[in-house]
Design a protein around this nucleic acid. Sequence first.
DNA 1: CCAGGAATATGATTTATATCATTGCCTCCA
DNA 2: TGGAGGCAATGATATAAATCATATTCCTGG
Lengths: 228, 228
Amino acid sequence: MIVKRDFLKSLPIFSALPDPILDKLTDRAEEFTYKNGEYIFYEGDPPDWLCIIREGNVKAVKYLEDGKEIILHVFMPGDIFGELAILDRRPYPASAQSMGHTKILKLHYTHCREICEDAPEVRTRLIQSMGEKQRGFVDRLETAMTTRVEKRIAHMLLKLAGASDSKGGTNINLHLTRKDIANMVGTTIETTIRIMSRLQKEGIIEGTKEGITILRPDLLREKGGEYE
Amino acid sequence: MIVKRDFLKSLPIFSALPDPILDKLTDRAEEFTYKNGEYIFYEGDPPDWLCIIREGNVKAVKYLEDGKEIILHVFMPGDIFGELAILDRRPYPASAQSMGHTKILKLHYTHCREICEDAPEVRTRLIQSMGEKQRGFVDRLETAMTTRVEKRIAHMLLKLAGASDSKGGTNINLHLTRKDIANMVGTTIETTIRIMSRLQKEGIIEGTKEGITILRPDLLREKGGEYE
DNA sequence: CCAGGAATATGATTTATATCATTGCCTCCA
DNA sequence: TGGAGGCAATGATATAAATCATATTCCTGG
């Protein structure tokens, strides 16, 4: 139990919480584990839970009528998700699916509200988190509107590396299949495979068993089009 | 002056405001006019203003390194924009550009904050507005990830009609050039022209001088892929 | 009312990528 | 231990859409 408390305290959103409120939060936050492919919630579900990733990764996904999957975002350990629904009290706009084995802390809306009343800065942080996400979507849209697939993939790899790797941003510690990548940039598996192989042959990226390493971020940036 | 007050009162976000606060708001909100192509603010500008469209339309745009324009969203009369920056206190993620002649009410951050303190429901409404926008982006992303351009255009036209036309959602009262449409769906002008002509020949849409009319929403929906 | 720039239109050509098809590899599990 | 299914890889082909090249029409500002 002490560990959960420490984990919560380590998150920027809760780090300034006075002890009694942190205790309350620790008590209220329920821990769940999910296996690969399991859903934490579905698009359209009532906005009941704020989620925090303790371990593993989660993807936000939507499905088109024809069954095609679109990956809106990949969340990392320490990330918060579901705050949009908590804040505007409307159903989740997308599903949240576990990538590999994950541990998720879930805080019920009622308790979240309680904590926000005790500590208004939590609410501010939630709004900031939502804002960050919106800015991410703007960026995402930019990627998606780029015509050449290679550019889109390059752009996406750079962004992912920046988000998942603290040291230098050249590592993607994520189990991404080619299909995942395809669903992130809106192309087919075959095209993704071809482009990824080409990037490997060119010595720009390297597939390790624990993810992808960007060997030449400079060259990738060239292809991705000056991603700042 | 009385007219400005009435306009503000007519907006859902301010309609419940007690009279003295509405008066204060009316006093603080400054009205500006913009000509076609002028910018209300630029991407990266400090987050100083909350904007409300009194007349005309505004597009939220980004520019890629190569100069290509991406239209993120088109705002309609009565719409609020800039609330993301106001809420999370970070620079605008995109520029706001006037489409044709527009009248914009601008409320400075400091006054916006004041009003929110006087009337907390305004803050709630701002958060809701931001949430709505985020949901819009998710939807937008869905469109952008669709491979066939015709589908993307169909999807976009249906959404625009829904947003700009209260009665039936078959009318787009907007001065959109083919270039605008191209920049909204991420394609070239030529392709847009060809597809729009085809849709006209097929009797699905009609170009009027005041915008676009969707004659056969059903057929467009078929192409757009069951847009609910 | 005219001139010149923007917007629309349309054709020809090229190219990127979707699509279809097949194969091999690996891992999980019965 | 031997499938069965998921993933990566690769080739062949079809096709949508980008690109290049001109016209033509339409406004709008001077």
